[in-house]
Design a protein around this nucleic acid. Structure first.
Lengths: 94, 94
DNA sequence: CAACTATATTAAGATATTTTAATATACTTA
DNA sequence: TAAGTATATTAAAATATCTTAATATAGTTG
């Protein structure tokens, strides 16, 4: 692992290293959702959720598409789910 | 995933979400090493490296043992390596 | 025990992340 | 086109992380 790659890897981890953002990824694991559904399930504010969604989209973790008034978010690359599953197993028993 | 678990998971991610710390984990994947070996391979300062090592030890990612003047660090739980491998594969091609 | 080696701790400043509140934008529909 | 709904952006304050430099500690050896 060279320095450049280590930085890329750290950037991906930082993009998901937040409780709300992990929950968002879990919510989207079940398929794409529009923002207000995500806000409801998170029990967080619209603004903050939107910022989390934007951050993860900019970092390539999520992708979005518009359909009328709604914007649907989805997981951009399923690799992230693998990482989450390892992490989940690791944390569940401790 | 409940809130408590999401926080635990985020804490583990934060503990490793730093280029130097990822490199340290990779170095230790080959077996335990003492601090000065790690410092050499990282090309970072003794103090900063020691702080990274402490942080990861406190968060349960690493473990250490003393042998005379040297303190040997090792990976506390191999789950972390699985996470890193997923992440590595994810980042290598982008 | 003095000098040395290996490592840890501390404090401070720099930088980044998180959160809130207010406001803006984009699209839809009456 | 005005009002309404869904979402995004911005700015500021609060908090956390990162880095450096200086110093402390713990063990070893002459």
């Amino acid at each position: 692992m060279n320095n450049r790659l280590a930085e890329k890897m750290a950037a991906v981890l930082k993009a998901i290293a937040h409780p709300d953002r992990l929950m968002i990824i879990e919510i989207l694991a079940g398929g794409e959702k529009c923002v207000n559904k995500i806000v409801e399930r998170l029990d967080s504010s619209q603004s903050l959720t939107s910022q989390h969604l934007n951050l993860m989209t900019n970092k390539g973790v999520l992708a979005r598409r518009r359909e009328g008034l709604h914007i649907y978010y989805r997981i951009a690359n399923r690799d992230v789910l693998k990482i989450l599953r390892c992490l989940f197993r690791h944390c569940r028993n401790r």
